Amino acid sequence: MGRINAERMDWTRFEAGDAEFRRKQLGEAAGGDQLGCSLYELPAGKRSWPYHYHTRNEEALYVLAGDGRLRLDDESLALAAGDYVALPADERGAHRVVNDGDEPLRYLAVSTMDDPEVTVYPDSEKLGVFVGSPPGGSDDRRLHGYYPTDADVDYWAGEAGESDNDDDEHRD
């Protein structure tokens, strides 16, 4: 059993575009393997990670303090202290946390930590691939990158020694 005290941990700060928050990775610090948990704090007027959903990892949010909003696919939910939201591992779980209140919004984000994982970002039409360590994990990744969702290539494209007419050559 791993035990940590969040009050004794340092915050990690993140800023990019309209996203700004502080985070403490509690699950990792306590030695969690299959379950992640992070404490987040969003300043007034700021947002969390870009709007996204996971294809393998389920997430949940529990609001500790403050007020905000949870952007979902077809609605926006008001968030207040004591609210718990389950986010399934598919497009129904697409989300982004927004602090539209006047005080910091503090919440726990809990997730399964399955690998490999594909995360989809509908607004920017891209996807993220994580192999070797899921999003939020710190193990070395064998494959990790972000790609346009419409970047489809032919299965055989780029195969060494292959040509479009190989099948014709073997029809004798």
Score class of each variant (00 low, 15 high):
residue 128 G to Q: 00
residue 96 R to P: 01
residue 38 S to F: 05
residue 84 Y to F: 15
residue 146 Y to R: 10
residue 137 G to M: 11
residue 169 E to D: 09
residue 143 L to S: 08
residue 2 G to A: 05
residue 17 G to W: 12
residue 159 E to H: 10
residue 66 G to R: 14
residue 23 R to K: 15
residue 26 L to P: 05
residue 74 D to C: 00
residue 109 A to M: 12
residue 67 D to C: 07
residue 101 G to Y: 04
residue 9 M to R: 06
residue 90 D to F: 05
residue 129 V to E: 06
residue 62 Y to G: 09
residue 162 E to P: 01
residue 79 L to N: 03
residue 86 A to Y: 13
residue 37 C to L: 15
residue 61 L to S: 04
residue 172 D to W: 14
residue 32 G to F: 05
residue 148 P to T: 03
residue 45 G to C: 03
residue 77 L to C: 09
residue 116 P to M: 05
residue 82 G to R: 04
residue 130 F to W: 13
residue 47 R to H: 12
residue 135 P to W: 01
residue 154 D to C: 05
residue 37 C to E: 01
residue 43 P to V: 01
residue 6 A to Q: 10
residue 162 E to C: 02
residue 89 A to R: 07
residue 170 H to C: 06
residue 35 L to R: 04
residue 29 A to D: 14
residue 33 D to S: 10
residue 93 G to D: 05
residue 75 E to K: 09
residue 29 A to T: 11
residue 130 F to A: 12
residue 91 E to G: 01
residue 59 E to M: 02
residue 127 L to Y: 14
residue 26 L to V: 15
residue 2 G to W: 04
residue 148 P to D: 07
residue 146 Y to P: 01
residue 115 D to M: 06
residue 22 R to Y: 10
residue 34 Q to K: 13
residue 72 L to I: 00
residue 135 P to C: 04
residue 7 E to R: 14
residue 169 E to K: 11
residue 65 A to V: 12
residue 129 V to W: 03
residue 110 V to A: 13
residue 64 L to V: 14
residue 47 R to F: 08
residue 117 E to A: 02
residue 32 G to D: 10
residue 145 G to P: 08
residue 134 P to R: 11
residue 29 A to N: 15
residue 95 H to N: 08
residue 105 L to M: 04
residue 103 E to I: 00
residue 59 E to Y: 04
residue 2 G to H: 06
residue 91 E to W: 00
residue 51 Y to H: 08
residue 124 S to T: 15
residue 44 A to Q: 11
residue 1 M to T: 10
residue 154 D to I: 02
residue 64 L to Q: 08
residue 72 L to G: 00
residue 71 R to E: 14
residue 84 Y to L: 12
residue 28 E to P: 00
residue 133 S to V: 09
residue 73 D to N: 03
residue 127 L to S: 04
residue 115 D to K: 10
residue 49 W to H: 14
residue 170 H to T: 10
residue 6 A to V: 13
residue 79 L to I: 02
residue 32 G to S: 07
residue 141 R to F: 03
residue 115 D to G: 03
residue 129 V to T: 02
residue 74 D to P: 00
residue 132 G to N: 09
residue 101 G to P: 01
residue 10 D to S: 15
residue 6 A to C: 03
residue 75 E to V: 01
residue 53 Y to Q: 06
residue 124 S to P: 05
residue 167 D to T: 06
residue 108 L to W: 04
residue 109 A to F: 05
residue 146 Y to E: 11
residue 45 G to K: 02
residue 138 S to E: 13
residue 1 M to K: 10
residue 94 A to N: 03
residue 76 S to W: 08
residue 71 R to Q: 14
residue 62 Y to R: 10
residue 121 Y to S: 11
residue 106 R to G: 04
residue 55 T to E: 09
residue 1 M to P: 13
residue 6 A to S: 13
residue 164 D to W: 09
residue 156 W to V: 06
residue 149 T to R: 09
residue 81 A to S: 15
residue 60 A to Y: 01
residue 134 P to S: 13
residue 127 L to C: 11
residue 75 E to D: 11
residue 12 T to E: 15
residue 75 E to S: 13
residue 91 E to P: 00
residue 99 N to G: 07
residue 122 P to G: 09
residue 82 G to M: 07
residue 81 A to V: 13
residue 66 G to Q: 12
residue 89 A to L: 03
residue 42 L to P: 11
residue 167 D to Q: 08
residue 106 R to S: 06
residue 35 L to K: 06
residue 2 G to K: 00
residue 83 D to Q: 08
residue 101 G to T: 05
residue 55 T to R: 07
residue 31 G to N: 03
residue 162 E to A: 08
residue 142 R to K: 09
residue 152 D to I: 15
residue 137 G to T: 13
residue 142 R to D: 11
residue 110 V to D: 08
